[in-house]
Design a protein around this nucleic acid. Sequence first.
DNA 1: AAATTTTGTCAACATACGTTGACATGAGAC
DNA 2: GTCTCATGTCAACGTATGTTGACAAAATTT
Lengths: 182, 182
Amino acid sequence: MKKSDITREKLLQAATRAFCAQSYSNVTLRMIAKEAGVDVALVSRYFGGKLGLFEAMLACVFDWPEMAASTDPVAVAIAKYTQPETEDAHMSVIRMIVVNGADPEVGDLLRVRLREMLIDPMLERMGGAEAAPKLAMFIAATLGAAMVRHTLRLPGMTDVSVDEYGAQLRHMLDAALTYEQT
Amino acid sequence: MKKSDITREKLLQAATRAFCAQSYSNVTLRMIAKEAGVDVALVSRYFGGKLGLFEAMLACVFDWPEMAASTDPVAVAIAKYTQPETEDAHMSVIRMIVVNGADPEVGDLLRVRLREMLIDPMLERMGGAEAAPKLAMFIAATLGAAMVRHTLRLPGMTDVSVDEYGAQLRHMLDAALTYEQT
DNA sequence: AAATTTTGTCAACATACGTTGACATGAGAC
DNA sequence: GTCTCATGTCAACGTATGTTGACAAAATTT
C-alpha cells in the first residue's frame, strides 16, 4: 500500500464522520483535514476538491453488497438496524442521507447515487408491483425514527434503551411491509 | 400599521420560506433580503441579526394554537397532514424541523422551542404513560414520510397522488398509535 | 551517489458571508 | 416652513471558505 493511499484513507474516514454528522455546506475542508491530521491542500490533490471527496465518501458508504444482493433486503435491514452493536454506524448513514439530501449543493447527486447503488437493486430483488411503496414506507419509518431519536431527541424515543427502540422500530417496519395499495 | 412593521413582515415571510427549504447555514441574509425586496442591513436593525430572524421565524411557525390546545392533538395532525390543500404548508414545516434540527448552529434552539411550544403541551393534553412513545413514533412516521416524499423522492411515494400518499401516511400513523410498550 | 518522481507544507488568492456605522431620504409634529 | 425622528441606502469591515501554485522533503529509481 502506497503512502498516498494511507492519507487518502485517512481523509476519507474523517470525511465520512464529518458528513454523517453535518451537512455538506456545514463541513469545512479544514475541519476534515485537521481530524485526519493532514494538510488541507491534499484534499484537492487527491480528490480534486470538496465535491470529489464527498462523492468518494458516497461511493464508500453506499457500497453495501450484502444489502443489494439479498433476496430479502428488507430483512437484512431490519436485522442491522435493530442490532444494538451496529446501531450507531447504520444510523449515522441514515443521518447522512437525510441531512445531505436537503442540501442544495449535493442533494441531486445523493439522490442519484442512492437509487443507483441501493434502491434500484433492492427493488429488483424484491419484485412485485407493491415493492416500491413498501420499500418507500419502510425507509420512511427507518429514517423518521432515526431522526426523532438522534436529531430531534424527543421524549419517548430518546430516553429509552436500544432494545426498546428496536421494538418500536420493528413495529413501524412491520406496518410498512403489510401495506396494501388501494 | 407602521411602515417598519411591513418590512419586518416581509422579511419574516421570506425567511420562513427560505428556512423551510434550506438549513440555517445554507441560507444567506442577502438571499432573504433580495426576495423580500429589502436591504440586507435591515435584518440586523429589526431582528438583531441572523439568529434573531431565525428565532422570530420559529416563534411564528410553532405558534399553532389549535394543535397545542386540542384534547386529541394527534387527530388534528392527521387531519392536517393528510389534507391535500394544506399538505405543502405543513410539510414545509416538517422539512424545516428536520433540516435545521441537524444544523449545529441552531439545532439546540430548535429542539428547545419545539418541545416548549408543541411537544410538551401535546403530551400534557394526551396524558397517560404511553403518550410519549406514541407521539414520538407518530412524529417519526410523519417526518420520515415527508422526507421520503419531498427530499429523497423515492419511487413508490413520490410518483403517487396526494390521496394515495395520505393513505400511506395514515397506515403508518395508525401503527404508531397502536403501539404498546413491552 | 545522482536523478527523478512522489508526497507534504505553506502562503496567498478570490469570493462570500454577517455585521456595522455613516449618510440620505422620508414623514409627521410644532 | 422647520425641526425631529423614523426609515432606508450604501460602502466598508473582519472573517472564513475552497482552491491554487510554488517550494521543500522524502522516497524511489537509475
